[in-house]
């Protein structure tokens, strides 16, 4: 595009929202800020750890060894062991995998549910919009912990229950964002032009509305990853999340809490990755938002 084009056109082009698909240039912009660099590094660390967890972890995270309970850190157990003699380092590493699985699966399910709901609410008839908004508002008015308790009582604790709780908790906010975006975009001329050309509903919704709606949604989702990871850890800490033997940062925290007077190490081992993940995804999301927002981008960069 920028062969011999004068400076003005290239800049105007790069400032337009039409380039969400140019992933590399966006990533380059994300990395170009200090916060973005930190965020990217942390996100990469966490994602790689989660991907290769079984190869990194030296022991099985569930192998109990009563002889070695609450061992101090050593070369054989980098972070020591917990009260059941399980290797803490291995549990932390595999906990990353649990955290990322919960976060990505619930995010994907929530987005998949929120996209059609938001598009229908925004583009569909008014009564449907009013009905859906009522449902969204009712759902988001539920107190999170009470709702989680009730769901766990009904369905039993476990990975899928955690995911369900998180999905139900986050669908309304995504759907509402999509609805607002849809409302503003459907009033624009190019949607009217599609209608005037006899374009079908599917074409208007998925070819023309969706790509214009999804940008802000991805940013919100990225920022939400840290919230979801914290939620999972919180639920597991309270015993409402994944089963105790499964390695999860929340379970490590919860186990460590019981022995905190003997050694603070398990609590630190469970808490630190949680903090790093939260910071990482928040920084990354914010840098991504700045990189994708044409107005911010132009002000901060020469």
């Amino acid at each position: 595009m920028a062969l011999a084009a004068p400076d003005i056109t290239t800049r105007a082009a790069s400032a337009e929202p039409g380039r969400i698909f140019r992933i590399t240039s966006t990533l380059r912009q994300v990395v170009s800020t200090p916060l973005g660099t930190i965020g990217c590094a942390l996100v990469a660390l966490i994602v790689l750890t989660a991907l290769f967890a079984p190869w990194i972890a030296p022991y099985s995270p569930t192998a109990i060894s009563v002889k070695e309970r609450l061992a101090d850190p050593s070369w054989s157990h980098l972070l020591g062991t917990d009260q059941l003699g399980r290797d803490l380092f291995s549990r932390v590493i595999l906990g990353t995998r649990t955290a990322m699985t919960v976060a990505l699966v619930s995010l994907a399910v929530a987005l998949a549910a929120a996209l059609p709901l938001g598009l229908i609410a925004g583009y569909g008839p008014r009564w449907l919009d009013a009905g859906l908004i009522l449902v969204f508002d009712s759902l988001s008015s539920l107190p999170m912990i009470m709702f989680a308790l009730a769901t766990v009582v009904l369905l039993g604790a476990g990975l899928s229950t955690v995911i369900l709780v998180i999905v139900i908790y986050s669908v309304p906010s995504y759907a509402r964002l999509i609805r607002t975006q849809t409302l503003s975009i459907k009033a624009r001329d190019f949607i009217k032009a599609e209608q005037a050309m006899n374009a079908g509903l599917g074409r208007i919704l998925f070819v023309h509305l969706l790509p214009n709606v999804i940008g802000p949604l991805l940013i919100l989702a990225c920022l939400d990853l840290s919230t979801i990871i914290t939620l999972e850890a919180g639920l597991s800490f309270l015993g409402l999340g994944v089963k105790p033997q499964i390695p999860s940062w929340g379970n490590i925290l919860s186990d460590g809490f019981a022995v905190i007077r003997t050694t603070p190490l398990p609590v630190i081992a469970g808490g630190l990755p949680l903090i790093l993940a939260t910071i990482g995804f928040t920084f990354f999301g914010e840098a991504l938002r700045d990189a994708l927002d044409p107005k911010l981008a132009r002000e901060s960069r020469p």
Partner: peptide, 18 residues
């Protein structure tokens, strides 16, 4: 709509920006 085409007053805005 099958027989008629509408040219908008602001043609640039009648195209999907993406």
């Amino acid at each position: 709509r099958r027989e008629a085409a509408l040219l908008f007053q602001d043609p640039a805005s009648s195209f999907n920006p993406r």
